[in-house]
Computed example of a mutant assay.
Amino acid sequence: MKRLAVAFLFTAFTSVVDAKTDVIVYGDDSYPPYSYVENGKMTGIYTAVLERIFEKMPNYNVKIKSTPWKRGLSEIEANKIFALFPPYERPKQRPYMEYDMAILDEKLVVVCQQSVLSTPRPNWPDDYIGLTIGKNAGFSIGGDDFNALLKSGKIKVTETKGTPKNLLKLIAGRMDCYTNDALSIQWELKQLKADGKYDGTSVVEGATISSEQGFLGIVTDGQNYPFKNTFKDEYHRILGEMKASGEVDKIVQDYIR
């Protein structure tokens, strides 16, 4: 009888384990510090937040895999994958994904030498007339008003490939300010400080240029994913709780400190 009881308990336990639904979520493999591959493993801020959420979803066995961004968009459009992160909300451009609750706010900001912001410059771009602004080569920044000032020669722009090189130019005083995503700047400054190339205080954040929100985009056509609605409900409940408690903010701060 004891053996039968043990066998029954083992079978029951196995059934509970087997009841978990396997889910694969894909993330952009080249979007540091938010989502990228390092040493063969997905990492980044969005990855860390989602891993924590999925740990709190006992009915699902969720794996995070990497994908080149354009491939991920193509495959979720073709209903080949269930979810992709971190798209911005583009319902007209990308109706094949659903955007219900943002994970994070992403800010495009301008940072400057400390001396440049000795007088506050909260208004973009008018407060930055007469300055030289750095940007990553190939990136479009600033908006229509900025482009008009650039065309008139009232603002100058210098382009350099990559965030670290731009920040080193800013630290060295070879330009007045630099524009990019706020967390990307903070993350790179952290690396430069660790390498002894930044003093930790001479770069100051100025105006916010624009903002976006990153989501876990879930496929609109759920016919291949019968678990979609229950997964979404649980995911959004936990994400909402983590945002309200400050847990998401803590993950972000721990990552960039």
Rank of each mutant, 00 (worst) to 15 (best):
A172L: 12
F227M: 08
S211V: 07
G72R: 00
K63R: 13
D100N: 15
Y225D: 00
Y34A: 00
I103N: 02
G134V: 04
Y96S: 10
R121L: 12
V111W: 03
T11S: 14
I155M: 08
A12S: 08
S35C: 08
L104N: 10
A182H: 11
S152Q: 14
V252Y: 02
D144S: 15
V203K: 07
I209F: 13
M101I: 10
I256N: 05
A148R: 01
N224F: 04
L167A: 14
D176M: 11
K156Q: 14
C112I: 01
L150D: 08
K2E: 14
L108Q: 13
K190I: 04
S30Y: 11
Q223F: 08
K243N: 05
P122S: 04
Q114E: 10
L167N: 07
H236A: 03
Y225C: 00
L189T: 14
E205F: 15
G246V: 02
F85H: 03
F139G: 00
G40Q: 04
D233G: 06
K41W: 02
G143W: 08
T132E: 00
T208G: 05
G217E: 02
S245A: 13
T21A: 05
T163P: 05
I133Q: 01
N39S: 12
Y178T: 05
E188K: 11
A7K: 10
M97K: 06
T220K: 14
G143Y: 05
R237P: 09
S115V: 07
E159K: 10
R90C: 05
K70W: 03
I251P: 02
S35N: 12
P95G: 00
E75H: 08
G222T: 04
D100P: 04
R52V: 01
M42G: 07
A7N: 09
Q191D: 13
K190N: 15
P120A: 10
R121D: 12
G153Q: 08
K70I: 11
L9C: 14
D181N: 14
T14K: 06
S184V: 10
I133V: 11
F227D: 02
R257T: 13
Y128P: 06
T158Y: 13
N79E: 15
M175G: 01
Q113I: 06
P86Q: 14
L4H: 12
P87E: 12
